[in-house]
Nucleic acid binder design. Structure first.
Lengths: 228, 228
DNA sequence: CCGCCTGTATGTTTTATAGCATCAAAGCTA
DNA sequence: TAGCTTTGATGCTATAAAACATACAGGCGG
């Protein structure tokens, strides 16, 4: 993924801007580089613009009771960051931190409000994106509150596979999170994430080697997520 | 609230349509009457249109593990129902059931897509609404998973007060839910909702008389929600 | 009027998971 | 390389909340 993809890649939200709009967009873009584990913004910050992840991985999380963090979602290249707060005219209600070295493209709020949102195709694409994310969030609320530990962890692993895919071997998750992040994604303590991953490994559902996780039996994992 | 409010009330999402658009809207409206505890739509249904609640109360919930229901949100007059699925071009991912006798206004999908969404003011209002709801949903995910029973129940009571307000006495919640619904809103079993409500009543934070709930000490309730 | 069902109330038991403690391994820095 | 810090692993204990059981009250239909 590169900066060009922001206008030229079908998956980018800006793909269907008119040629004119795309040209103007160029004048409203700036790029920022982030190291691993760097904050992009913090809960309570005022949004500065519309951000697109060009390269890397970012987690968006909220601090809960006693500072315990819950990862709300994770972003892959061409994904949007912090747009909810900007478009909703609110402050950020979660924090964003890079999981690896990342490149983020910042588009001025002015361009979004005065140009992009005047284009109904763009607006509608934003609306669809928000609707989908809202559906996802509602579903997560239910599974995170109702499923048991095994089910929650299995769901998280499936989520990671869906979002980041596999390495060339077809088994290894293309995401190398700490156990703590896996726990924060799955609403459990780090100990329980470690313990349950070990159990899954014993059951040959996955194989673990440090942060490398191989999904050996995706069907079984799916079943654990649904029923466990 | 009446049907007129849909175009004339500032709080309605259609308020800022042009006069022309408002007139055309009249030809795309139909009204439906629902009795108490009637389904408006079910999880998995294809959305039929854009719905606005004119009168009454509706709960939107998802069925989770073992049929246990989690109330995602509740609607008051001029609130939207089922628009997420329509605009996101998905099936409903939750069910809607009336909590009291209700009047619902249905606007054709055709009008929304071909007319309303061509108006950037309307689109942007939808976007803002979605952003706010998404923020709410994310926040709920964290509190429902992390807060303890007392905190979750206190939060639900505050939510009900914010959404439906108080009767003329200034204390009685203008919402008369079953204990089961209160439980499903707060992610707990009915027994625990009953028990915890009793505890709050003993502590003089609230007073209960059947389904009538008086908030006696709103500050204390707020504190319980934050810390408890 | 009586019995039945539904909703509410409350006590007891069981269990999932948080919390804590300890230890090993790995990674980093001086 | 040695020492320090972070991360991962695992056992034990404590506890919040579910699950279960029982009982009572109010409304409804026969």
């Amino acid at each position: 993924m590169g900066v060009r993809d922001i206008t030229d890649n079908q998956k980018s939200i800006f793909y269907l801007l008119t040629q004119d709009e795309k040209e103007e967009l160029q004048h409203h873009i700036s790029l920022s580089h982030y190291k691993k584990n760097e904050f992009v913004f913090k809960e309570g910050d005022k949004p500065t613009g519309f951000m697109i992840l060009v390269n890397g991985k970012v987690k968006i999380f909220k601090e809960g009771v006693g500072g315990r963090e819950q990862i709300i979602r994770m972003t892959k290249p061409l994904g949007l960051i912090g747009y909810r707060a900007l478009l909703g005219e609110e402050t950020h209600n979660g924090s964003a931190v890079t999981l690896e070295e990342s490149l983020i493209c910042n588009i001025s709020a002015e361009f979004i409000f005065n140009r992009a949102l005047k284009n109904p195709d763009f607006s509608y694409r934003i609306i669809r994106k928000l609707c989908q994310e809202l559906g996802f969030s509602n579903a997560r609320t239910v599974t995170l509150t109702q499923k048991h530990i095994r089910g929650r962890l299995a769901e998280s692993l499936i989520l990671l596979a869906d979002k980041y895919g596999y390495e060339h071997d077809g088994f290894t998750l293309r995401a190398y999170l700490s156990r703590e992040d896996i726990a924060n994604l799955s609403n459990m303590t780090t100990s329980n994430a470690i313990r349950t991953l070990s159990t899954f490994a014993n059951e040959k559902v996955i194989a673990i080697d440090g942060r490398k996780i191989k999904i050996l039996d995706a069907n079984r994992l799916e079943r654990i997520s649904k029923l466990g």
